[in-house]
């Protein structure tokens, strides 16, 4: 029978404001999940350990936590696999990151739900409801299949680097739900959604650290959804108002005119108003040779690229 030490983050605000760690030694069966192990500890050793859980089947999304620093769904994570991956018989268990702890492994998810609600995570069709149901082809539903798998476990928020730097960032799961509906052919609010998700703390704030794709236990690939929302913004003509969108536009202009990125174009294109105020820094960059010629950097066979830019159709 395997034995494991669980080094658990404890926070019991009723008795102390200071979090502490507590080790629990546990003998358990070969194929025990982290959730089952924690419940066994709760049952046999310390009934006061607080954690959220419900379905035990990776459906409800309640039991996300960190195992040795990596965010997991406790009910999906096998104890023996964690030990093998990390080469240790001790597993550190912590609440998910980027949220305030409430008690032990339970965090305050209110900001998560507020952000989720803020993206209008429901279908808003145009016009009157039809007499019968709205039929959608399999192909059309496949466009939003990944995003439909989200179980709102918040694992993608736990290590999001943008969220760590800006607590107001609306975040990966909410934006994935945004695309779930912006990409649904029955929805009539694509343009409004593109506007809603753009702007400060919105889709252009994603720093592409890829933690969300790495940690999502359901294959939602939230970063990919954010990318698709950018595509929706461009298709709906909502691509000038935000500096992030203008930054992306500078790449398109660069590639169309020369094939390579024109770095010197990026700053004034992204921040046309504030760029001149940054002249001292620009001078430093010029002095260090870090401001290349603003003329297009022409590749060979640019005609191929121009043809592609004109003819490739987008489907987001």
């Amino acid at each position: 029978m395997p034995a494991t030490t669980f080094d658990v983050f404890r926070y019991q605000p009723d008795s102390s404001d200071t979090p502490y760690r507590q080790e629990f030694a546990l003998d358990h069966s070969d194929k025990v999940t982290l959730l089952d192990a924690l419940l066994q500890i709760q049952d046999e050793q310390d009934g006061s350990i607080a954690m959220r859980y419900s379905c035990r089947s990776a459906i409800c999304g309640s039991c996300s936590c960190k195992a040795n620093g990596r965010t997991v769904l406790a009910c999906m994570a096998q104890v023996e696999e964690i030990k093998e991956a990390d080469g240790s018989d001790t597993i550190q268990v912590d609440p998910i990151g980027n949220f305030a702890p409430v008690k032990d492994l339970i965090v305050d998810l209110d900001p998560f739900w507020e952000k989720f609600r803020s993206v209008k995570p429901y279908l808003i069709p145009d016009g009157k409801a039809p007499e019968k149901e709205r039929i959608v082809s399999k192909e059309a539903m496949n466009k939003v299949y990944n995003e439909s798998k989200c179980i709102l476990c918040a694992a993608c928020y736990s290590e999001c680097n943008s969220l760590a730097a800006d607590p107001d960032f609306v975040g990966p799961a909410a934006l994935a739900w945004g695309y779930r509906f912006a990409g649904d052919e029955r929805d009539g609010q694509r343009k409004q959604r593109a506007k809603l998700y753009s702007g400060e703390h919105g889709l252009w704030d994603c720093t592409r650290c890829m933690y969300c794709n790495e940690r999502c236990p359901k294959g939602v690939e939230p970063r990919d959804a954010i990318e698709k929302l950018g595509g929706v913004a461009f298709r709906e003509g909502v691509s000038w108002g935000d500096a992030g969108a203008r930054h992306a536009r500078a790449f398109l202009v660069s590639v169309r005119t020369g094939g390579k990125l024109n770095e010197t174009l990026l700053v004034p294109f992204t921040n046309p108003v504030t760029a001149p105020l940054d002249a001292p820094f620009a001078l430093q960059m010029i002095r260090k040779g870090k401001a290349p010629s603003p003329l297009p950097h022409r590749i060979k066979k640019l005609n191929e690229v121009k043809h592609l830019m004109k003819n490739v159709k987008e489907e987001v």
Partner: peptide, 26 residues
């Protein structure tokens, strides 16, 4: 690779996903 373009750095993917894919496959 004298005819290679920019990869798009995630920005072209964020504006025009199909174009990103085509440029990179090229």
């Amino acid at each position: 690779m004298p005819a290679a373009t920019c990869c798009g750095a995630g920005d072209i993917a964020e504006a025009k996903p199909n174009l990103y894919l085509t440029l990179n496959v090229r």
